[in-house]
């Protein structure tokens, strides 16, 4: 809660930092903001090609590229957030050693930029849903709490890693490999649906499994959410958030001396 209070106090700076990051990213580019959709779309094409023609895996009743795209959107948000927030503090060491502001604003503005990309991709997904006439049900409303869980989880992990990177630059070096591992542990190119209980439980240790899997279910398959699982994941992510943000605020005071 501390972090939310601090952001509200510094919201004007936060808005400007998000705008700055977004503006700078697409300045001097030809296709500009279209880059936001390009990466997940090309990954989608790749998966569709590999799993339709090479490995011949049947993943869904609806077109499989939509299946992959729906998994790639939350995944890309998570991966981009982590990747851009880890160096966000160390890259701005000049600001950190000269000016006081809540340090979490830097990683958070990276996350906010990734969230804007997420929204752009979500619009593209919605266009696919309309074109391929995938029926939406009321269960699709579960999407909103799922997005909240995704953002809270991503924020906790990003703040933790970004803060740790100030002390140990190993974090930055390890992150690529870590994200790659995490990718295969998350149901982006597969679904946990067909797996046995043991395997499912193991994969559900990763909060992203629950989030990505259920985003697809409620939106594309019109299925509901298992409530006890939802409650469990909420508690896990809540604990993550409290512990990791406390840790960040604790070490944040020394950033200017250490960085």
């Amino acid at each position: 809660m501390d972090i939310i209070k601090r952001i509200i106090k510094y919201r004007q700076l936060f808005i400007v930092l998000v705008w700055r990051e977004f503006a700078v990213r697409y300045r001097y580019t030809i296709i500009g903001v279209m880059w936001a959709g390009l990466q997940p779309l090309s990954m989608m094409l790749l998966f569709t090609f590999i799993f339709t023609y090479i490995m011949k895996i049947h993943v869904s009743a609806y077109p499989s590229f939509i299946f992959y795209f729906a998994g790639l959107i939350p995944w890309t948000f998570f991966a981009h957030s982590i990747n851009s927030s880890i160096p966000s503090l160390t890259n701005h060491y000049q600001l950190i050693t000269k000016i006081y502001f809540p340090r979490e604003l830097l990683p958070l503005s990276s996350i906010a930029t990734a969230l804007l990309d997420f929204v752009i991709c979500a619009v593209i997904l919605f266009v696919f849903i309309v074109i391929y006439q995938i029926p939406l049900t009321w269960n699709a409303l579960w999407l909103f709490p799922l997005v909240v869980l995704l953002v809270v989880f991503t924020t906790s992990v990003s703040l933790f890693l970004a803060g740790l990177n100030v002390y140990y630059r190993d974090v930055r070096l390890a992150s690529n490999f870590l994200i790659q591992l995490w990718f295969f542990m998350s149901p982006v190119m597969y679904s946990v649906d067909s797996l046995g209980t043991k395997m499912k439980l193991m994969l559900f240790l990763n909060p992203l499994t629950f989030i990505i899997e259920n985003m697809r279910r409620v939106l594309l398959e019109g299925r509901g959410i298992v409530l006890w699982q939802m409650a469990f994941v909420c508690v896990v992510i809540g604990v993550f958030y409290v512990v990791l943000t406390k840790f960040f605020i604790k070490i944040e005071r020394a950033f200017a001396d250490v960085i």
């Binding site: 740790l164 002390y167 140990y168 604790k250 070490i251 020394a254 001396d257 250490v258």
Partner: peptide
């Protein structure tokens, strides 16, 4: 600075 985070 490895020491400092441990100190924190």
């Amino acid at each position: 600075f490895h020491k400092s985070i441990r100190e924190e």
